[in-house]
């Protein structure tokens, strides 16, 4: 474990906790994309299958369970909670997210480290996570006023994989870890998708004004 990976995991954990707090306290999921949340459930289920087959550490196991539980909980709130589901921007969250699943799976069948079920699903989860934020970013452009909690949630979510990029650089040089091209390229694509959000988020933070993405 290195400081970059720990910071990345904490940023990721904080983002999901922030989102859950926003939904629970405001009883609203306005501005949040259900499509992105559902893609994240698929990402975590496909990636954390080794939860039952390999024990790395208490930390690793607990964090996997937390990410699976929180992502399922958020989808439950947005789909079934009687008050929260009324606040879902159904008409704005129109990205057909099931469209991205088959290409990611097909790519995982073609490009992977090893052709086994676990490895292909793990690779699929990396490709899917790289594009999972798209519905949320598109919804943001359609949302007039983005509340602070949502902005912070997306910033932390983007920051986590950016920190993982630093973690991979650290591991490659310091631990002489072998090249992880699939993780590296997926992580780069994922972080690049946040580029313009980061720009407008930091700009709004510097000028102390409301976060606004150009349509």
């Amino acid at each position: 474990m290195n400081i970059f990976r720990l910071a990345g995991d904490m940023s990721h954990l904080l983002s999901v906790i922030l989102l859950l707090l926003k939904i629970r306290t405001t009883k609203s999921c306005a501005g949040i994309s259900l499509k992105t949340q559902e893609l994240y459930v698929v990402v975590f289920l496909a990636r954390y299958l080794n939860l039952f087959t390999r024990y790395y550490s208490f930390y690793n196991t607990v964090m996997k369970l937390v990410f699976i539980a929180t992502s399922v909980c958020i989808v439950w709130y947005m789909r079934f909670h009687k008050v929260v589901k009324q606040t879902y921007n159904k008409d704005l969250d129109t990205f057909r997210h099931y469209v991205v699943i088959p290409p990611c799976f097909l790519l995982a069948l073609l490009v992977h480290h090893e052709f086994t079920v676990m490895e292909v699903l793990w690779t699929f989860s990396l490709y899917l996570e790289a594009v999972a934020i798209l519905p949320q970013l598109i919804l943001l452009q359609r949302t007039r006023n983005i509340d602070n909690l949502t902005g912070n949630y997306i910033f932390l979510l983007g920051a986590y994989r950016a920190l993982y990029l630093l973690n991979w650089i650290y591991r490659f040089f310091m631990e002489k870890a072998q090249a992880r091209w699939i993780s590296w390229i997926s992580g780069l694509v994922q972080t690049a998708l946040y580029a313009d959000f980061f720009y407008y988020y930091i700009k709004s933070w510097k000028n102390n004004e409301k976060l606004k993405l150009p349509a």
């Binding site: 990976r5 995991d9 990721h12 080794n50 390999r54 790395y56 550490s57 690793n60 964090m63 996997k64 990410f67 480290h113 090893e114 490895e119 793990w122 993982y164 973690n167 870890a177 072998q178 992880r180 993780s183």
Partner: peptide, 10 residues
């Protein structure tokens, strides 16, 4: 096997 990257990350 050693060639597979460690899955110790989240």
């Amino acid at each position: 096997n050693p060639k597979l990257p460690q899955k110790d990350e989240l």
